[in-house]
Amino acid sequence: MAIQSDKLALAHDPMTPRVMRVLKRCHDGPQTVTLDIEPGDSAPFQPGQFNMLSVFGVGEVPISLSGAPTDHDRLRHTIRAVGPVSTALTRLSKGECLGLRGPFGNGWPMQQAEGHDVVLVAGGLGLAPLRPAIYQLLSERERYGRITLLHGTRSPADILFHREIMAWRRHRNIDIEVTVDHAPPDWRGHVGVVTRLISSVPFETGNTLAFVCGPEVMMRFAIAALKDAGLGDETIYLSMERNMKCAVGFCGHCQFGPVFVCRDGPVFRHDRLGGLLNLKEI
């Protein structure tokens, strides 16, 4: 018995990358590069979504969009060189070609957050997938209550988007606290874990949504601290990361218990992960 034989829309094969050029490349910290890529005919993206970026002949990796969703002139991605593909991506220069598929996945719950206070907890490079959400929160500032960004990172030299954070702090209606794990003696900011900042935020519990993104260990502790501060599991959203090959739910790699991180995430409401975050090797 044959399946329904619809027209095969090859032009829309989700596995074939579109060839795009790098418009701009700039350093954003140690081993970290932000690439602006021409958008071509890419669909608009939601804050929190990701693209699959290919270096031809090397491979493909998922990279979150880190720019403004309203910027239709470029697709911005912030990449840290950790493996062969991400390293090759960070070495691309202006004018070079790369492959792009996407955008994939869901996004941060921007609509649900309207009328609420929002606290964003970003660990390390986890600030990159949160930045589009920050842009959107700030551009529609009147729709949201108090906005707080807590950014934890390794050392002052590792602070992502440092100058932009300073500018937000000066000019925008957003509370920002940055903390590092260790610092040279001229550092005047916080030193210590990001979870400690959570207890100092004046939450209006019952009216606050938390967006959390960072290393999984840090997210576990951040969730615990947010719950201690009075937030319910259903108000905490986190962006998960797993090995990803296809981004469309075919390859099976990104499974995290019952979910495919690519298809059902990467953003999950904490109560919907059913405690899996606390199990080893899931």
């Binding site: 044959a2 469309v248 075919f250």
Partner: peptide, 16 residues
């Protein structure tokens, strides 16, 4: 799902 595997679809479409 939302996406279809084009190769599987093609190999499945005229099966007897």
């Amino acid at each position: 799902g939302h996406y279809r595997d084009v190769h599987y679809a093609a190999r499945r479409q005229d099966n007897f």
